[in-house]
Amino acid sequence: MTELTCVGPDCTNAVKVKADLLCDGHYWQKRKGRPLTPLRPQARRGELRRWLERAVTIETNECIIWPFAAKDRDGYGQIKVDGVQRKAHAVALELASGEPAGDRQALHHCDNPPCVNRRHLYWGDSTDNNRDTVERLRHKGRSNLTHEEVREIRRRFIPRRRGVPSNALELATEFSTSRQAIWRAARGASFTRVE
């Protein structure tokens, strides 16, 4: 008996769901209501490690971007080493420097999470990482608002009064946050240190 192949675009995988003639990947795209698109190629065992070992030998000042789908929610490449999921840039720095990370963290000069170029990486600790985050204006605390945005919200906020609706919903939409976050920022319940 011949094995059926998936009818998804550019797919040669074996059919898992015979009713739809789809492989697992295309079946889940269909089930989630997404259009059928070509699947990302899955890395074979050891392929990520071999690619990373080659990448750290490249002599360039440009970012070397982690090309695999294995990334965390912040965009950092992920690789499994000895059964433990690790950040690819930290493993790249270990390979390049010959030193294990220990308690240190691998930090980027380029501020580009998927970059694994050894020239863009350096060792630091959590204090260095936090300082770097603040200096590069990526730190927003637990909020998704910056101090400049809070000042703008306070300047433009119109509280609800009789016959006059608040503009909190419009501001929440504009600043991509919740109406409650707008109210708290405008009234000083949050961002108490921002004038």
Rank of each mutant, 00 (worst) to 15 (best):
E3K: 10
E3Q: 13
T5I: 10
C6K: 09
V7G: 04
P9R: 12
A14D: 09
A14Q: 10
V15N: 10
V15D: 11
L21V: 09
H26T: 10
Q29Y: 09
K32Q: 15
R34P: 03
T37M: 10
T37A: 14
P38C: 10
R40S: 14
R49H: 10
W51K: 01
W51P: 01
L52P: 04
E53L: 00
R54A: 13
V56E: 07
V56N: 05
V56L: 01
T57A: 12
I58W: 01
I58F: 02
I58M: 03
E59N: 06
T60S: 13
T60I: 07
N61V: 07
N61F: 01
I64C: 05
I64D: 12
F68Y: 13
F68E: 11
A70V: 00
K71D: 09
R73H: 15
D74H: 14
G75I: 13
Y76T: 11
K80W: 08
K80V: 14
V81L: 05
D82E: 13
V84H: 11
Q85D: 14
R86S: 12
R86W: 08
K87T: 10
A88N: 06
H89N: 10
A90M: 02
V91L: 02
V91Y: 05
L93P: 00
E94C: 05
L95C: 05
A96Q: 05
E99W: 00
P100H: 12
P100S: 11
A101F: 02
R104I: 08
R104A: 14
H109I: 10
D111K: 02
P113N: 12
P114M: 07
C115N: 07
V116P: 01
R118C: 06
L121P: 00
Y122M: 07
W123Y: 14
W123I: 07
G124M: 03
D125C: 04
D125S: 02
T127I: 09
N129S: 08
N130V: 11
N130Y: 02
N130Q: 14
D132I: 05
T133N: 08
V134H: 08
R136Q: 11
R138E: 06
H139P: 02
H139T: 07
R142H: 15
S143F: 01
N144H: 11
H147S: 09
E148W: 01
E149K: 05
R151M: 08
E152C: 05
I158V: 13
R160N: 06
R160Y: 06
R160W: 02
R162T: 12
G163C: 10
V164L: 03
P165M: 11
P165T: 13
L169Y: 14
L169P: 00
E170M: 06
A172H: 07
A172S: 12
T177W: 03
S178V: 04
Q180D: 14
I182W: 04
I182D: 07
R184Y: 10
R184A: 13
A185G: 07
A185R: 00
A186E: 09
R187I: 04
G188N: 05
G188L: 00
R193V: 11
